[in-house]
């Protein structure tokens, strides 16, 4: 069977997934994901016309609570888990080029 997924597909998916991969990794994942997708193709054997998709095991939707304010997590506690912070902000490296404005 032809591999259902190509190097270019995997490159695209890696980009969407925000994963920086080497060419060797792309080749390896193409081969491995191809095998898994080949197995998953088993699902096309079934006639699923008219079957309602089931996204969740519990039959519930729009779970709401009383609209009363509750205390959230203090900013310093939330920032304590960040790789870098400058309270009350998360700190990131410069992401815009010279002169590109903000």
């Amino acid at each position: 069977m032809a591999n259902p997924i190509t190097d270019a597909d995997v490159r695209h998916v890696a980009q969407l997934s925000r994963l920086k991969l080497s060419d060797e990794q792309i080749a390896e994942y193409t081969q491995q994901l191809g095998r898994v997708l080949g197995y998953i193709d088993k699902l096309s054997e079934l006639d699923v016309d008219g079957v309602e998709p089931m996204a969740h095991a519990l039959d519930m939707s729009n779970v709401l609570r009383e609209d009363v304010p509750v205390e959230g997590m203090p900013v310093d506690k939330a920032l304590a888990t960040a790789p870098a912070a400058d309270p009350p902000f998360f700190k990131v490296p410069k992401v815009l080029g010279e002169g590109s404005g903000a």
């Binding site: 997924i5 597909d9 995997v10 998916v13 890696a14 980009q15 969407l16 997934s17 925000r18 994963l19 920086k20 991969l21 994942y29 491995q32 994901l33 898994v36 997708l37």
Partner: peptide, 22 residues
């Protein structure tokens, strides 16, 4: 994003993220 995630996640986690994204 892409380098932090590539360095932080192991092979199987990457494989599953890509399969799910696909």
């Amino acid at each position: 994003y892409a380098a932090s995630r590539a360095e932080g996640f192991g092979d199987e986690v990457k494989r599953r993220i890509m399969l799910g994204t696909y």
